[in-house]
Computed example of a mutant assay.
Amino acid sequence: MQDVLRRWKAAFDAHQPDAMADLFTPDALFQGFGPAVLTGRDAVRGYYEAVPPGRRADVTVLHSYTIGEQAAGGFADVTFGDAHGWEAHVHLSLVLHLHDTGWKIQQYHVSRVEDEHQ
């Protein structure tokens, strides 16, 4: 979990949509800020292409767990921000799957944390 989120943060902060998409399985389910659930790497790439350059993410892993030898999951606390003061705090849940090339994100879901929930 730590390694996957470290690579995710590096690609996000550098605004690298292709690198972001490569972190996901080909059939990944993705729920970002928008209302639609996206499926697959191309959809993930498109989502991250639309993120304005200059956005950054601060990530803290809250909990991780394994499900056998080829699956894992976990939760993270993420604060997105930019140099203009925009900020969004979310909880991120992930399901990871072990592939020949390493751990990939199979399922990604963010839930925005409003002030009254902090």
Rank of each mutant, 00 (worst) to 15 (best):
G74N: 04
L94F: 04
A28F: 07
W8D: 02
T79F: 02
K104H: 06
A88V: 07
F75I: 00
A57Y: 08
T66G: 15
V59T: 08
P26H: 09
V59N: 07
L96Q: 05
T101A: 15
K104M: 03
G81W: 04
V110K: 02
A88S: 13
D13V: 00
V61N: 08
F75W: 02
A72W: 10
D100P: 11
M20P: 02
A76Q: 00
D27C: 05
A76E: 01
A36G: 00
A57E: 10
G68Y: 12
V44E: 08
V59L: 13
V78T: 03
G54I: 03
W8K: 01
D58Q: 14
D42K: 11
W103Q: 11
G81K: 02
D115S: 15
P53G: 07
D82V: 05
D18T: 03
Y47F: 13
D22E: 15
D3I: 03
K9F: 06
I67H: 09
H91L: 08
P53I: 05
K9V: 04
F30T: 03
Y65H: 11
W86P: 01
F80L: 13
Q31S: 14
A50E: 11
S64D: 11
A83E: 12
A50T: 04
D42Y: 03
K9Y: 06
A57I: 05
L5K: 04
L92Q: 14
D82E: 14
M20G: 04
V90Y: 06
V90P: 07
L29F: 11
R7M: 05
G32P: 05
V37W: 09
V51A: 10
P35K: 15
F30G: 04
T25K: 15
R45Q: 13
I105A: 00
H91W: 05
Q70R: 15
G102Q: 10
H117S: 13
I105N: 00
V78P: 01
R112P: 11
A21D: 03
I67P: 02
W103D: 07
S64T: 02
G54T: 03
L5R: 01
H117N: 11
R56M: 09
F12D: 01
V78W: 01
A71Q: 12
V59M: 10
D27F: 11
A57V: 12
Q70L: 08
W8C: 00
A71I: 08
E87N: 08
H84I: 01
A36M: 06
S93V: 10
D13G: 00
R55C: 09
A88L: 12
M1P: 00
A14C: 07
V90F: 10
G54S: 07
H84F: 12
T101L: 14
D100S: 11
M20S: 07
D115I: 10
F33C: 03
Q118C: 09
G74C: 03
K9E: 09
T60F: 05
T39Q: 14
F12V: 02
W103L: 11
Y108V: 00
V4D: 02
D22Q: 14
G40A: 14
T39V: 13
A14G: 05
H99A: 10
A28Y: 07
L96S: 02
V78R: 01
R45T: 06
E87M: 09
L94G: 00
R56F: 08
G74E: 02
Q107M: 09
F24P: 09
L62P: 00
E114V: 07
A43F: 05
I67K: 11
D27L: 12
A50W: 07
